[in-house]
């Protein structure tokens, strides 16, 4: 079958999709967007978390066909997504993303080999600065989930952070630096206001 949907603001078309393929598979193997990760492929680890019409979902549990006509944000588009949101007049960053907004923005292409000079979203920068990245396999899903948390709750308590990220497994860090990263991003965000 053919599936048409929007990924990071760009219309995408995937052909010859077998009906059993997940959104995760189509992103990774058909659209060249392997940033969303395949740690468990059973909805337990959160490494494949993307926004589907603004809602965080495990893309491994979404059939590709369910994405037809909808809007997907992956880690590859997170920096531009966050920038667009910040420029969208929502000073607190806590205004959520309406479906209309979600469909109006577009991620820039990146082709850097080293990532140098890449513009990052606040949460991405905070993950690097706080040492929240080790092997990095959980990172894309945690970034999408953390970004969504800070979008709706700019000043989360520790318990709020833990609750919001409880669907994302990390095996390397013991989560302490991830807590630090979310706190750091929240603090930087409130300084800007």
């Amino acid at each position: 079958m053919r599936v048409n949907f929007t990924v990071n603001g760009r219309p995408q078309e995937a052909d010859d999709v077998w009906e059993g393929e997940s959104l995760l598979y189509v992103l990774r193997e058909r659209l060249g967007l392997p940033g969303s990760k395949n740690a468990c492929e059973q909805g337990e680890c959160g490494s494949c978390t993307v926004r589907l019409d603004g809602v965080p979902v495990c893309s491994c549990l979404v059939a590709a066909g369910q994405a037809e006509g909808r809007d997907v944000v992956t880690v590859e588009g997170l920096a531009d997504f966050a920038k667009q949101r910040a420029e969208g007049g929502c000073a607190s960053g806590a205004c959520g993303t309406t479906l209309q907004d979600a469909q109006q923005w577009k991620a820039k292409g990146t082709d850097s080999q080293t990532g140098e000079g890449t513009e990052l979203s606040p949460i991405q920068q905070a993950f690097i600065d706080a040492g929240a990245v080790q092997c990095g396999f959980c990172t894309p899903g945690l970034l999408v989930a953390s970004d969504e948390l800070l979008e709706r709750n700019p000043n989360p308590s520790d318990a709020d952070i833990r609750e919001a990220l409880s669907g994302n497994l990390c095996r390397c860090t013991g989560y302490e630096k991830i807590m630090d990263a979310v706190r750091l991003a929240a603090a930087r965000q409130s300084e800007e206001v």
Partner: peptide, 23 residues
């Protein structure tokens, strides 16, 4: 010094190529 990871940027942008990302 607590210098930051040289692969950090690639890992937070989803561009770091893991073995399962090979194509």
């Amino acid at each position: 010094e607590s210098t930051l990871r040289p692969d950090g940027t690639l890992k937070v942008t989803g561009e770091f190529a893991y073995s399962s990302d090979m194509w």
